[in-house]
């Protein structure tokens, strides 16, 4: 790691001010991606602004069918939350499958989506559920938030403060993990929401995306695994590496989608 300074503000405003004061400062929430990156000297922030002590960022609240999860909420907390399990069990299950138990005890939803790793799980959950990303400045639809590999619509000085989810009619997430890293080679989140059927895919491309061909098939033929029989996803633009070719990933998207639809019941 390169040397850096460290601050632990207690308000969002103070955090934003600290980040604004130094162009090379970075926020750290759980640190489960950032710290390994720093250890490999792949990033060289001059300052780390720790968001862990900001009470406004913590906690899960429920209002009717809407679940609001504070940005600093740990994956293990989401996985264990009775509210999440009751309203959106697929989201609790997704959180339960992120990384390993130690990562889940430290990693946060805000950190995960702000980082937008192309193989992370939460972006698929947010996009699949049509979540609303709340920042210190505005609210953004997930469709507008995730903009590509490790990139989001966040501006400088803008922090994710919470994510709002609305209870879907049904949903499920099924992941095909990389056998080594256990990140998603392909993860598919399917949901039948008030706004329609959504199929979000992580791991397969440069960033999380919606599989429109699958959505159309489910919409037209009904929300059933059989509706996806023979529906192929194009391999164009998908990732290809030593673990999985683009063609294999394309195949897995349909398979995982079918399994997710079946699991959603």
């Amino acid at each position: 790691m390169y040397a850096f300074t460290y601050q632990k503000p207690t308000t969002i405003a103070a955090a934003v001010a600290a980040l604004g004061a130094d162009a090379d400062a970075k926020p750290v929430s759980g640190g489960q991606t950032l710290i390994p990156t720093l250890k490999q000297r792949l990033a060289a922030p001059t300052a780390l602004v720790d968001l862990a002590k900001i009470p406004e960022l913590a906690g899960i609240t429920v209002a009717g069918d809407t679940l609001t999860i504070g940005a600093m909420t740990r994956h293990a907390t989401v996985a264990d939350s009775a509210d999440v399990k009751r309203l959106i069990p697929a989201l609790a299950a997704l959180a339960e499958g992120i990384g390993d138990p130690q990562v889940r005890n430290r990693g946060t939803i805000g950190g995960s989506i702000a980082n937008n790793d192309p193989a992370a799980d939460y972006p698929a959950g947010c996009l699949g559920l049509g979540a609303t990303i709340v920042t210190n400045r505005r609210e953004l639809a997930a469709d507008a938030f995730f903009t590509g590999m490790f990139s989001t619509a966040l501006d400088d000085g803008e922090l994710v403060t919470a994510v709002k989810f609305t209870k879907p009619k049904r949903a499920a997430y099924v992941k095909f993990p990389n056998p080594a890293s256990r990140y998603a080679i392909v993860g598919v989140f399917v949901a039948e929401t008030a706004g329609g059927i959504r199929v979000a895919v992580t791991g397969a491309g440069a960033g999380v995306f919606r599989a429109t061909a699958l959505e159309a098939a489910l919409a037209s033929k009904g929300f059933a695994a059989a509706s996806l029989d023979g529906v192929a996803v194009s391999a164009d633009g998908l990732n290809s590496d030593i673990h999985a070719s683009a063609e294999y990933r394309a195949h897995l998207i349909t398979v995982m989608a079918k399994r997710a639809v079946a699991a959603a019941g």
């Binding site: 056998p179 080594a180 890293s181 990140y183 030593i242 673990h243």
Partner: peptide, 11 residues
């Protein structure tokens, strides 16, 4: 070396 860490070399 493409399998230079446990992220890519499957233990």
């Amino acid at each position: 070396l493409l399998t230079g860490s446990m992220m890519d070399y499957c233990m």
